[in-house]
């Protein structure tokens, strides 16, 4: 695997957008440097030949952990909604949604 190219400020801004974060000019500068340093440390693995190794998503090879289709108690709605920033008519309230779900 070849060494990926260094991180750019544009990429940092793009990634912040995906993560719903806003960065000041200064933060873009700092994060680009700091993330770049972590990523260049990661060059030690990006240059490894790991062909044939199965990516490891879990420590152990468990499979088929299933529960039976039996109803359990739901939360008390008032307790749930008490933690919400804004509520109306038993529902969570948000401002304008600009587009439909992708």
């Amino acid at each position: 695997m070849s060494d990926p190219s260094p991180l750019t400020k544009q990429e940092v801004v793009h990634v912040a957008g995906l993560a719903r974060l806003e960065l000041s000019e200064d933060e873009v500068e700092t994060f680009t440097a700091q993330l770049g340093s972590v990523l260049s440390h990661a060059a030690d693995i990006s240059s490894l030949d790991l062909e044939g190794l199965v990516p490891m998503a879990h420590p152990f090879d468990l499979e088929n952990i299933l529960r039976s289709d039996v109803p359990t108690a739901s939360l008390d709605r008032d307790e749930l909604l008490a933690a919400a920033p804004s509520v109306e008519a038993g529902r969570f309230k948000v401002g304008r949604i600009l587009g439909e779900a992708p």
Binding site: V15, L18, A19, F31, L35, I45, S46
Partner: peptide, 23 residues
């Protein structure tokens, strides 16, 4: 969050996240 978003994003997944899982 930024680092992780980057490592999973289109075009970088294999080089970073995929490679990290193999490591």
């Amino acid at each position: 969050i930024m680092l992780g978003t980057y490592a999973l994003s289109a075009g970088y997944y294999d080089a970073y996240y995929g490679q990290a899982q193999k490591t």
